[in-house]
Design a protein around this nucleic acid. Structure first.
Lengths: 274, 274
DNA sequence: CGGGCCGATTAACCTATGTTGTAGCCCTAT
DNA sequence: ATAGGGCTACAACATAGGTTAATCGGCCCG
C-alpha cells in the first residue's frame, strides 16, 4: 500500500489506483488529484451522504468504507442501484440536476473527500487526461448499472448472486481491498436482497446454495470465493462491462501532444500493483 | 417551435429540442450543433448500429426513428437497456472504452448523424454550455437506466409496464413526437418483454389488463393513453428522474461571463468559467 | 442476570410470472 | 389464391421466488 517514490511522498489513494488502471497518469496529475482530496470528512455507518429529492452541493470521493446508492418507491420498496466503493465518485453529475433522484447511504464508517463542482471545470481545462479518466470512471459506473439491469431482468437468483459477488471481488481488487478471493462484505442480507431484486428470504436460500456447493464461504462479514472461475461461470460473468482494459490507443494518441509531461515517463512508470 | 431569428434559418433537430429543454442555447451554439449533425446516414430497420464486443468509432446522434440499446447473455437471453429516441446520443462514451458492452439495433428506418469523437473535445473547449448540456443528457440517460433497474427489481409487471409507457410518452413529447397522450410505439411485444424483464406471454397478459381497465388503447402500433395521471399512478411514476427541469441557477451562474459568443473557433481556448 | 432488538435461518404455504402449445390474423411473395 | 412468416392471443400447467411466521444466536444495556 505504501508507495513513496519521489520527494513529495503522496499516498496512493483508491481513486488514484482506480484511474491508474485506465491511464498512466503523471506525478503532476497525481498531485492535482490529491489536492482534490484535501478536504476530508468522516461519517458513521447509516448516514445519508445524499438524499433522494435533495438539492445537491459538492462532489465527493469515497476514500474508505462502503456506501450504497439506492432509490425508493413511495411505499417503501427499495432498490440498491450500486455499491459505492473506495475510489468511486458520488454525485459527479448531480450538479447538473436540480435535485438528486437517488440516495447514498453509508454502510460502514467512511472517509470521503469533497470538493466544489467548479473544480471539475478547472480540471477539464487544465488536465484533459485526468478528465478523460474521470469520464471513463463515470461511464463505467453506468455500464455497471446496465449490467445489473441485465441481471435483474434475465438472470436467475443464483446467477445474479454469483455475478454480484464476482463483480465486487473484481472491483475491490483494483483498489487493493481483496486478496486471493476473499474480502469483507459489510452488508446485511436485506441489502443484498435490495440490490438483487429478491426477497430477503430468497437471498438467504440462494447464499445457502452457494455455500452448500462449496463455491463460497461466509464467516461473519468475510466472504471467501473458493473458485472464482466457477463462480463466474455460474453467474455468466463476463468482465467486458467493467472495461478494465487500459485506454484505447486511439485515445492515447489524441492526448499525446496535448499532454505536457516532464516527470512522468510514459514507459518507465513502474506500477506498484500487487 | 420554429425559431429562426437570424439570417440562417436552421431547422430544430430533436437533439436541439431536447437540449433546449435544459438550457437556453444561443444561435451560435445551435449552428455548431447543426454542424455536428452534418453527416447523415440512413439505415433500415433491424440494423445493428453497434455490436456488443465491437470496437467503436464515431459518436452518433439519433435524428429520426427508434432503436434499442440491449445486452445479451451467451445463451441468448436478452435485456433491452433503453430505447434510443430522436435526440439521443449513441456511443457517446464508447470512445473511452476498448470495446462496446452493448449493442444498438434499429427498430424502424432511422436517420442518424455521426461525427468523430475528437469533436467532443473541441466542443468542451469552445462551447462549455453546450458541453454541460450534453453531459446533462448523458447523466439523464444513466438516471433512466437506474430507474428501469428500480422497475425490474421492485415493481410488478403491471407497474413496470405502466411506468414505461408513461416514460416514453414524456420523453417523446419533449421532441414533439407525442400529442395528447398518443404516440407510435414501433415495438413488438417481444421487445417490450425484453425491456421489462418479462416473458412475452406475460407482457401480453399485462397489456390486456391495461386495455381492459381502459387505461390505454392499442391500434396496431399506435398507443393511446386515456388517463396519463392514472396510468402514472399505477406505475408509481415520478418524473423526478427525467430531470426535465431547466438547469439549476447555480450552474447558470457558473456560465454567465464564461460564455463568449462571437468566436466559435476551436482555438477560443481562453480560460472560460469562473 | 434478564430483557429486547437485530439479523440469520428455516419451514410451510402461496402467487406472480414463466412455459408450452395451439390458433388466428395480417402481411408479402409468388 | 395460396403459402409462409411474423406477430398477437389465450388456455393449461409448472415453478421460481414471495410471504408469513417461528426459532435462534448475538449483542447491548439496564
Amino acid at each position: 500500500m505504501t508507495r513513496a517514490p519521489a520527494s513529495r511522498a503522496q499516498e496512493s489513494t483508491p481513486l488514484w489506483l482506480k484511474l491508474s488502471s485506465y491511464l498512466v497518469l503523471s506525478d503532476e496529475e497525481k498531485s492535482y488529484l490529491s489536492d482534490l482530496e484535501r478536504t476530508i470528512v468522516r461519517e458513521p455507518p447509516r448516514t445519508d451522504l445524499l438524499q433522494q429529492g435533495e438539492r445537491y452541493r459538492d462532489v465527493r470521493i469515497m476514500r474508505d468504507g462502503w456506501a450504497i446508492r439506492h432509490k425508493a418507491l413511495p411505499d417503501g420498496r427499495r432498490q440498491v442501484v450500486n455499491f459505492v466503493l473506495p475510489g468511486d465518485l458520488i454525485g459527479m453529475y448531480c450538479t447538473l440536476f436540480e435535485s438528486a433522484d437517488h440516495s447514498v447511504t453509508t454502510l460502514t464508517a467512511v472517509e470521503v473527500a469533497s470538493f466544489p463542482p467548479e473544480r471539475i471545470g478547472e480540471l477539464f481545462r487544465s488536465f484533459p487526461r485526468l478528465a478523460a479518466a474521470l469520464a471513463w470512471s463515470g461511464a463505467r459506473e453506468e455500464a455497471i448499472v446496465a449490467e445489473r439491469l441485465l441481471s435483474l431482468g434475465r438472470r436467475t437468483a443464483l446467477e445474479r448472486t454469483a455475478h454480484l459477488i464476482v463483480e465486487l471481488l473484481r472491483r475491490l481488487s483494483i483498489v487493493n481491498m481483496a486478496a486471493d478471493g476473499h474480502f469483507v462484505l459489510p452488508v446485511t442480507q436485506e441489502i443484498l436482497a435490495d440490490a438483487l431484486g429478491l426477497s430477503i428470504v430468497h437471498i438467504n436460500r440462494t447464499l445457502r446454495r452457494l455455500r452448500d456447493s462449496g463455491l463460497i464461504e461466509l464467516n461473519g462479514q468475510r466472504i471467501t470465493v473458493n473458485d472464482v472461475r466457477q463462480l463466474a461461470s455460474v453467474g455468466q460473468f463476463d468482465e467486458l462491462y467493467l472495461h478494465l482494459i487500459r485506454a484505447p490507443r486511439r485515445l492515447e494518441r489524441a492526448f499525446s501532444g496535448a499532454h505536457h509531461h516532464n516527470s512522468a515517463r510514459p514507459d518507465g512508470e513502474d506500477r506498484a500493483k500487487a
